[in-house]
Design a protein around this nucleic acid. Structure first.
Lengths: 338, 338
DNA sequence: CTCTTTCATTACAACGATGTAATGCTGGGG
DNA sequence: CCCCAGCATTACATCGTTGTAATGAAAGAG
């Protein structure tokens, strides 16, 4: 039988409330009493029942983290930092996967309202999910990622600027026919895809390069497999472009795989760039040029926003933009005309 | 203000307990009453308070999953399947990272005892963690991975056999000087490393190949970076072996990166094999030969074991072995003597 | 028409922790 | 010597849900 405050109180010869006072430390407790209680706690190996505390306080000390698909390196790395940061601050983290099935985000909100979690950090994947209706009963919520909405607190990377920067980088290397992988298409519509494509087009326009719709390759999903298939199909019909700018590192890895299979050397014949700076990108062959940002800072800011929101539910929403940089590695290089 | 059973009961004109009966569905409720309650629930958008339920029942419906480092593809993919399977069965999943700092596993057990979770699935990383003392107060617990202990339920892959099979596979391809990456060393001691090395040595012995201690490369940690560094250092001093058998796919990716940098073609000059069959291994260049096993089945079996353990705390521990297969891809091929 | 029997429904208490308001104690001033 | 101020500690109620035991009503038997 698990010991309770009652047991501790009995052993220490005080009342349950005094034990509670010792643990929460807000009320002053005489040093002698305090130490007596503390040793009773140790002796019984007492651990407070968080369900009871949660019931009483309306707080559980747990937040929910909803990422599209934990299995993908991007979600995984982000999750890693969220868990790390949250644990440092004493929060538990409960997981949800939004890609599993549509509407998952809603059931998630339900869960939150079920008071198992005090707040939610949500990386929406579809447009609908980012349009969660706020009927006033939403739990404290922070959106992460490239979502176009103003209703909730949000942390993101400026995808338009980042895509523009990367495209310009490729242009500066001498590339002209720059294909993108992950363009928004009928099978895959996300705000992220839209924004990155917008940045790409802006950079082309700035360099007076005519955008070629053929070079905007879309995938049925943002996975290495889908990218590999889409690029393979593209190469079957078209000559290789100067460079591929893939909207995620995962798709870049799939793209490089397709190029390897097709016998096209990277970066010899074409350059390949990604987005996200996942750890394995550094160890791809060749190491991947990518858009990088501080994932730990991302997690810290999002959690800070969430905690703040828990405190003041009615404050106006805040949007935090995380700085990005272009990390040039061996997968891109100056174009040497054939 | 969140509605409670009381509010629902008032609206439906019944007692709180009847509402509870409708939701839990064990006791028979007259159809007419039931539908009245159900529409009251819908109207108020009532969601039960899980803290209260947890306090009352002693069950929270949440399990904890403790993996070494969520950021690594292996942990991430396993976690993905655990979350998927758990959600299908209505469990919530709370995350812990055991690699964060030593002793984490203990604080985790504390958390479990704090009754926020009903059970724990633990992938221990150090030997100590796998030796958790059972003072009778452990929560329902299932160990996953290559841990040598008999105290707890466990799901694993037979690492000795798998490493033996992979080594034999490489031998059958004509390789003789087969290096391993991830050999147990002073900086990194795990049961997994021991077992895989044992399997490797057994296969060499069976083929009458003298094991060469120089070919047993150890890394300071099981990451692509550490593997890349260790292999680079190895190549600085030694001639390239016929093949590298890396004890994880992550290390295989690091190894291929080092080989790429050193200008040694894979699989032209050397073959590379991994272990775990992570998704990105298929899209490495070249695609990675590896030891594969059904991760979803792994998760299902572990969760089933955990649920069973919750029901009967005193049953003797069970150990489940998940089948493995060798998946041959382009990173290994028949040796062509120079 | 009355007395069981059956079975849906209800009243009440309890899970464990903690905020509130009241209690008891100690010591200093009148 | 007594009373009151100040402050550590306590009793009690409460959070929302559900098991237990009791209630009440309806149906069937005598």
């Amino acid at each position: 039988m698990r010991p309770t405050v009652k047991d501790v109180a009995a052993l220490a010869g005080v009342s349950p409330k005094t034990v509670s006072n010792v643990m929460n430390g807000v009320v002053f407790v005489a040093p002698e009493t305090r130490s007596r209680v503390e040793s009773a706690i140790t002796e019984l190996a007492y651990v407070p029942n968080l369900s009871a505390r949660g019931l009483r306080n309306g707080r559980t000390g747990v937040i929910a983290l909803a990422m599209p698909d934990l299995g993908t390196p991007y979600s995984a790395e982000m999750s890693h930092f969220f868990v790390e940061v949250a644990h440092e601050q004493g929060w538990g983290v409960q997981f949800e996967e939004t890609a599993e099935r549509p509407g998952r985000a809603l059931s998630l909100v339900s869960r939150a309202r079920a008071h198992l979690v005090d707040g939610v950090i949500l990386n929406p994947i579809t447009i609908q999910e980012s349009q969660l209706v706020d009927d006033g009963s939403l739990p404290p919520l922070v959106m992460i990622g490239e979502v176009e909405q103003q209703r909730n607190d949000q942390v993101w990377v400026d995808s338009v600027a980042a895509a523009r920067d990367m495209t310009r980088h490729l242009i500066e290397l001498g590339h002209r026919r720059i294909a993108i992988v992950g363009s928004p298409g009928p099978a895959f519509q996300t705000a992220t895809a839209d924004l990155r494509q917008r940045g790409y087009r802006e950079a082309l326009r700035a360099a007076a390069i005519d955008p070629d719709p053929l070079l905007e390759i879309s995938c049925r999903e943002w996975s290495p497999r889908a990218a590999s298939e889409a690029v393979t199909e593209f190469l079957r019909v078209n000559p290789a472009p100067d460079a591929f700018f893939c909207f995620t590192d995962s798709m870049a890895i799939g793209t490089m795989s397709a190029l390897w299979t097709a016998g096209i050397p990277v970066p010899g014949d074409v350059s390949v760039a990604g987005f996200d700076d996942i750890a394995d990108g550094q160890f791809a062959t060749p190491p991947l040029t990518t858009v990088s940002f501080d994932k730990r800072e991302f997690a810290e800011r999002a959690l800070a926003l969430l905690v703040q929101r828990m405190g003041s539910p009615d404050a106006p929403p805040t949007r935090v933009t995380i700085a990005h940089t272009i990390v040039a590695r061996a997968s891109t290089r100056v174009r040497t005309p054939a």
